[in-house]
Amino acid sequence: MLDRLAGRLGPAALLLPAVALLAVVFVLPLLRLLELSFSDPAGAATPYVELLHDPIYRKVFAATAWVAVAVTAITVLLGYPFALALARAPLRWRVILFACVLTPLWISVLVRTFSWMLLLETNGPVNRLLVAGGIVERPLALLFNQTGVLIGMVHVLLPYAVLPIYAALVRVDPALLRASEGLGASPARTFLRVLLPLSMPGVATGGAFVFLLSLGFFITPALLGGASSITLSMLIDGFVNERLVWPLAAAASMILLAATLAFLAMAARFVAPAAVAEVR
């Protein structure tokens, strides 16, 4: 009996329970949010118009984009040489370096961000070291501003840049590098003319990952940032939890979602959506 029932289980039946869960907990709530974004009594499009025209909100959009671009640039610039070292390291070191990249991904972003709160305080260890080392005279403001947000986000997102760049670097055929050097090119020239161009797809993938994750990042900016560095995700939180304005919250969410999907469509050449999940 059970055998015959199971024999008929096609792909549809196997997918059904998961699809049902996603329909109720994922698709339906997003549709409800879309509906809410047009529910302003003052007019369906009012929240969108307000968000896109008010200079305060435009500043938030600009800050969100700026943080995402800055974090992407920094993680790629730091991640590339790190990935290169990883690719060239002897096996034993490679294992250790890999553990350093992958293990933090398991630790809650909340815990990692809290650590930075302790380290970056005015009287925290980082400032005390800077003052004791004579690098600065007075403690720097590293927390509750954009500096703190950048430090925390680069720390959390760096592995997402390193891994695709590493994958691209190890795919480069070593024979090409040997050929270039055999033909008399200096190591610097071989790097610039052969290795760098061939590893660019990895840079594009890593950069796209980091940018995508930065756009909607919430925990780290909310804890390390301040009133002067509000991002779109913090704005949405404020709309829901402080100002209780659902149409604005829903419209801002839809704008963030649209920006994310638009970027994903643009970057689809470099990023298979499934790969976003694979990295973690």
């Binding site: 698709v27 756009l215 919430f218 949405i236 969410s253 963030l256 994310t260």
Partner: peptide, 24 residues
Amino acid sequence: LALALFVGPVVVPVIVLAVALYAV
């Protein structure tokens, strides 16, 4: 299409998911 649906929760910013779920 099925793959796109399955990676949806990873791709959509979690703050958007949170607000949407909270509303429902």
